[in-house]
């Protein structure tokens, strides 16, 4: 593994993993992939048990009071770490970009939210932009296509970092799909509130995925992945779907999303 920091003389950074509610319930293997990637990169990882969700379902439903309380819990649980790492651009963006606005400007809580924001990173951008990692040491045999989840792409500027790490995986062929930067139609509660619109959007996405010719779809957000996996499987597609962290960590033993051995 190549990495720029931390050197053996430095103290290992203490990373709090915000595992996300979807990873916790649906796909713990993504959480363990994240832990492996972080530990291999020289971090001490802990996962506070008091975390639940970042609060986006309430935030995007206009329920600011509940969002604020959830945010306070997250701030309290994570502010003592050197870094907070999230295997999701959407939840990472929530903590990094939206928490501070929930509180009175200039208040103690706003300051604590801003301090947390400064040390919160999406997993892949933490590995690349903060730790300077260029390869994760994983190997993979097959072709993949990568979907840019919207929040990671447009809120956090994550686009080239996962592609750079994937390019360093021996045996992996990246086949870009058309419009990889266009929404998959998930949108949190949007996909259940307006299922028919969501369906049209995800159908366009799965057509582009299929046209790429790749055997596997990767992305960095469980919500988007479950949406696209669910649609591909409803369409009878053989394309497998995984979180990018699983491939980068070399932890692809578990069946892919929505499949059994």
């Amino acid at each position: 593994m190549t990495n720029a920091s931390p050197s053996s003389t430095q103290k290992r950074p203490r990373v709090g993993l915000f595992v996300t509610c979807l990873v916790d319930l649906f796909r713990p293997s993504v959480g363990f992939s994240a832990v492996k990637l972080l530990e291999d990169a020289g971090c001490d990882v802990d996962v506070p048990a008091v975390q639940t969700c970042c609060g986006q379902p309430a935030f995007n439903s206009g329920d600011k009071a509940d969002t604020r309380e959830i945010a306070q819990n997250v701030i309290k649980a994570f502010e003592h770490f050197d870094y907070v790492v999230v295997p999701s651009g959407s939840c990472g963006g929530m903590i990094k970009l939206h928490y501070a606005d929930l509180f009175e400007p200039g208040s103690d809580w706003a300051a604590r939210a801003e301090a947390l924001s400064a040390k919160t990173f999406e997993l892949v951008s933490f590995l690349t932009d903060v730790l300077g990692i260029t390869t994760t040491g994983a190997a993979f045999n097959g072709s993949v296509t990568y979907h840019d989840s919207c929040s990671g792409l447009r809120e956090l500027g994550i686009s080239e970092q996962p592609r750079r790490l994937l390019a360093g995986v021996p045996g992996l062929e990246l086949r870009e799909m058309a419009d990889s930067d266009v929404c998959c139609g998930f949108g949190g509660l949007f996909c259940v509130k307006y299922p028919d619109i969501s369906n049209v959007i995800v159908e366009r996405k799965t057509a582009n995925i299929a046209e790429s010719g790749a055997d596997m779809l990767l992305a960095g957000d469980m919500g988007c992945l479950m949406n696209m996996a669910g649609k591909l499987q409803r369409q009878g597609s053989a394309i497998e779907v995984r979180h990018v962290a699983e491939v980068l960590a070399g932890m692809t033993d578990a069946p892919s999303i929505g499949r059994v051995k």
Partner: peptide, 16 residues
């Protein structure tokens, strides 16, 4: 709303 148009992946087992 979810399953009208797509399958719902099952959890892997115990939570993280």
């Amino acid at each position: 709303g979810w399953t009208r148009h797509r399958d719902l992946p099952a959890p892997q087992g115990k939570t993280f």
